[in-house]
Every structure is written in C-alpha cells, then in structure tokens.
C-alpha cells in the first residue's frame, strides 16, 4: 500500500510542476503532461486500493514511460521542467512495479497456505 501512497504524492508533484517550473513561455505539452500525467497517476493509485483493481496502478508505468521518452525527445540543453519530468518518470517507474499487496505473499500462495491450514485442521480434529 505504501507504494500507492507515494504514487499519489508523485502525482501531486506532477500537478504542481507546471507552476513550479513556470519560467518564461512554456510549451503547452508541459501543462498537458503535468495535469494529465499527474491526475492519471493519482486516480490509478487510489483505484488500486479496491482489491479487484489492485493491479490497475501498473498503467501508471505508461505515464512513467511517457515522461521518460518525452525527456529523451526534447533537445539539449534540457530545460529544468524536462529534467523534472525525467526524474519523476524514473521514480514513478520504480514505484509502479511494487505490488499493492507487497507486504503479503502473493494471492496464489496465500490461497495455497489457507487450503493447507484447513487440511491440517481437519486432520487434527
């Protein structure tokens, strides 16, 4: 769950980024990246708290790759806003691959252990 919480924080940072790095004329893409990327990250992270959708946060990997590739496509020297995109993209990529239930064994192992525990109980009765 903590990875999702951090993703929400990263999403908030993305939403704020266009204002923080607002120096001079900004291409409209930067605003789109900040707002669309940021809100998508937050929404997907929150949706993952609902168990049937607990893997939906993996879609944020798309946001991360978009941020990273956008930074690579921009020319050098890289503006601060684009460096921010690159940094946030890499951080987001690392967070999104952490499973929501990472503190527990994966579901199929949990089911297996539960079944075994039930068998043991039956045997002891």
């Amino acid at each position: 769950m903590w990875a999702r919480t951090l993703e929400v924080a990263v999403g908030c940072w993305l939403l704020m980024s266009p204002f923080i790095f607002a120096h001079g004329a900004q291409p409209v893409e930067w605003w789109v990246t900040g707002f669309v990327g940021g809100s998508a990250t937050i929404i997907l992270a929150i949706m993952s708290f609902w168990p049937p959708l607990q893997r939906i946060h993996l879609l944020s990997l798309g946001v991360a790759l978009w941020l990273i590739s956008g930074a690579f496509l921009s020319g050098t020297p890289t503006p601060a806003a684009v460096q921010n995109q690159m940094t946030v993209g890499l951080l987001l990529a690392m967070l999104t691959i952490i499973p929501t239930d990472s503190n527990e064994p994966p579901e199929s192992w949990r089911r297996r252990m539960e079944a075994k525990r039930r068998d043991d109980q039956l045997l002891s009765e």
Binding site: L91, M94, L95, I98
Partner: peptide, 11 residues
C-alpha cells in the same frame, strides 16, 4: 532510492 524501495518491498 530504488535500492531502498526494492529493499523494503515484499514480505
């Protein structure tokens, strides 16, 4: 930071 994130994740 990735070392720490991947180090903390998992049971």
């Amino acid at each position: 930071l990735g070392d720490a994130i991947f180090g903390l994740a998992g049971c």
